[in-house]
Amino acid sequence: MNFKRCKLKRLDGQNPSYEKNKIMLKINNIHAQVGDNKILKGLNLQVKPGEVHAIMGPNGAGKSTLGNVLAGMEKVQVTEGSVDFLGKDLLELEIEQRASEGVFMAFQYPVEIPGVNNMYFLRAALNAQRKYRGESEMNSSVFLKLVREKIKMMNMRDDLLRRPVNEGFSGGEKKRNEIFQMSILEPKLAILDETDSGLDIDALKIVADGVNQLRNADRSFIVITHYQRLLDYIVPDFVHVLADGKIVRTGDKSLALELEETGYGWLDK
């Protein structure tokens, strides 16, 4: 409810083409550190609905930290700057509130939760989010139907649903499970953190297919990756190069190809 009011307020002061050009996520001058280690040093980024932004850059540039800032990992301290997500101050929200507002993170290393069945976990998550948004809980038969439908899409084996969350999953299965969860939770903004790492080309295609099916005019993606390989399959609208805690270059898909040619060595010059 709150959020609608905010949107209206902004509308008043904006030009009439706002709806089309409205900004979903506005990251403004973010400085963040882990312990004493300053990682992000004034990062700016704006994402509109339906856009796919790729974040590339050398190891240690702060790519994953950016994802962690958005998801709200506690050990990452934001010392300066702001993040506006659909009119809300994202940094003020708890981790689970951000999730319920529609921020989804596909982890680079999804954790294992022994003994907790994947299905049960997902349903608890979905209903917690629905409750937050004032929607009714999804009953088990509807949920089951939804799960069946989506699991086919991800080309995943049914028995992974009954297994404990990520336990005993192969690297590829874990990544597919992340995208599968995304398809169930239907976020507004999805952050894919090095989703391509450790995947062979077939697994990569399946994951990318899953992502592409979820692309639509309202849903945005931030794709964090080290290699341009993934971007052959998930074609980005923008490519940003993150180095030393800042975005140092922005371009379109061709920038990714250029980076593959030249590497990141030029950053040092």
Partner: peptide, 10 residues
């Protein structure tokens, strides 16, 4: 963190 990121309370 993982659970909370999916919207589940602590």
């Amino acid at each position: 963190f993982y659970c909370k990121q999916r919207g589940i309370s602590e």
